[in-house]
Design a protein around this nucleic acid. Sequence first.
DNA 1: CACATGATCGCCT
DNA 2: GGCGATCATGTGG
Length: 200
Amino acid sequence: MRRPDPRLDLELRERGLIEPGREFFRRSTVRVARDLVGAWLARRWRGRWYGARIVETEAYLGPTDRAAHSWNGRRTPRVEPMYADGGHLYVFLVYGMYHCANVVTRREGVAEAVLLRAAEGPAGSPRLLSGPGKLCAGLGITVRDSGLDLVGDGSIRIFVPRRRSRVRIGVSPRIGIDYAGDAKAWPLRFFDIQSAAVSR
DNA sequence: CACATGATCGCCT
DNA sequence: GGCGATCATGTGG
């Protein structure tokens, strides 16, 4: 059983963060998306752990959601991780050069997920992780990580505040889905209104 | 500030 | 063959 770098472990504990169980991710996708704002993403890279505070997410709702890769029940090898049990990772390549990381929600067979759009990285580089492609680039997340389990002892994990967070959360339609019909207007984007790292 | 465009390639039609 | 859950850069007002 690997443990996080003691420094990260201490930092997360000091911030009052704990690792949620599988049930956290099996809840409604909108609730998970909201609760992931203010949560931390921990990434093991070459034997060291790095943490980033998530500040912007989007919910993708499955067969009825034209913007979702699982729209209309689409089930291809690329999308397959979206059908996994809650708490898995779904990563895809966009525009031939950027990766997007999603946290899978609900139960096995229900293809919904939360896109991680932005995080707060190291102090001094406030915009380093401010966008889904930049977040993945900054944390070294690629399609090779698609399908990983975030629950347990893997190389990518999620930590959430132990107590109800006092973060003020803004809501808006999702970004970059003009083709999605009525789903284009659905209020499924959530962000920390205090954060300078939210994407434009 | 607001657009407009190019890069680049896996996936789906 | 077309296009995208993006981003950086360039143009013009």
